[in-house]
Simulated assay, not measured.
Amino acid sequence: MLVYAILIVDMQAGMLAGAPKHDLAGVVARINALTAMVRGSGGRAVWIRHCGQPGDGFEPGSPGWEFLPELLRAPEDAEIGKTLNDAYAGTGLAALLRELTPSRVLVCGWATDFCVDSTVRSTVSHGFAAVVPSDAHTLSDRPHLPAPAVIRHHNWLWSELIADPPVRVLPTNELLAEASPPHQVRG
């Protein structure tokens, strides 16, 4: 049986400032479905919280520091505070995952091209089997590229990384179907 951990990166109220985030409601719904699947399989959800500098939108204790209220969190979930893009840098994330020994580590959240990207790459560097739900990460349009193009680019890039095992990138519905045991018909 596969044991999952899911890293939900920076899905905090502070992300609502500025330009709209691509398909945010859909991303939140898919993250909720994935966290339920992970918990249901005996895995663990790990909420990554950006801890900003005094006065910025992610300052600890500020309204922007709180997780989006639409996200379904559970008491058994873990939380890791970070100050850099990479959720592993200067945190206890790698030690927590080594303790949990997941078969696969799902990475989702905000922002595709910064904190999610850094965390996917670091998951691989720390020797974990990384899986990216291709439709469960988001960002705003960038000055040179619209958000959907950035998302497509990073999904392709992660699937092409040289890693052992390779990074798997697939839509949430395929991940959910893969994790559901086949129903047996009684006769």
Results as ranks from 00 to 15, higher is better:
4 Y>D: 13
116 V>E: 11
176 L>V: 07
91 T>K: 00
70 E>I: 04
160 E>L: 07
49 R>Q: 15
59 E>Q: 14
72 L>T: 14
24 L>G: 03
47 W>K: 06
105 V>F: 06
56 D>K: 06
70 E>S: 14
10 D>L: 01
109 G>Q: 07
64 G>E: 09
172 T>E: 01
36 A>W: 04
130 A>M: 03
115 C>P: 07
175 L>N: 10
159 S>Y: 03
76 E>S: 13
29 A>W: 00
12 Q>N: 08
159 S>D: 05
96 L>N: 09
110 W>E: 14
29 A>R: 12
47 W>V: 10
178 E>G: 09
87 A>S: 15
101 T>F: 04
12 Q>V: 12
20 P>G: 05
143 P>S: 05
7 L>E: 13
97 L>S: 10
104 R>G: 03
150 V>R: 11
146 P>W: 06
111 A>P: 00
183 H>N: 08
134 S>V: 02
171 P>M: 07
147 A>P: 07
135 D>G: 02
21 K>N: 14
119 T>C: 09
105 V>R: 04
25 A>D: 14
33 A>V: 03
112 T>W: 06
100 L>R: 10
12 Q>H: 06
127 G>I: 06
12 Q>T: 11
39 R>G: 05
49 R>F: 06
163 A>T: 10
118 S>Y: 11
165 P>G: 00
13 A>V: 15
137 H>Y: 01
54 P>W: 09
171 P>K: 08
34 L>T: 04
28 V>W: 03
175 L>K: 11
24 L>S: 04
35 T>I: 05
58 F>K: 05
100 L>V: 03
9 V>P: 11
111 A>F: 12
174 E>Q: 15
125 S>M: 13
168 R>C: 08
95 A>D: 15
129 A>C: 08
16 L>W: 10
117 D>V: 04
146 P>A: 13
55 G>P: 02
170 L>N: 00
11 M>C: 15
35 T>R: 03
59 E>C: 13
164 D>G: 06
67 F>Q: 10
70 E>Q: 15
187 G>D: 12
130 A>G: 02
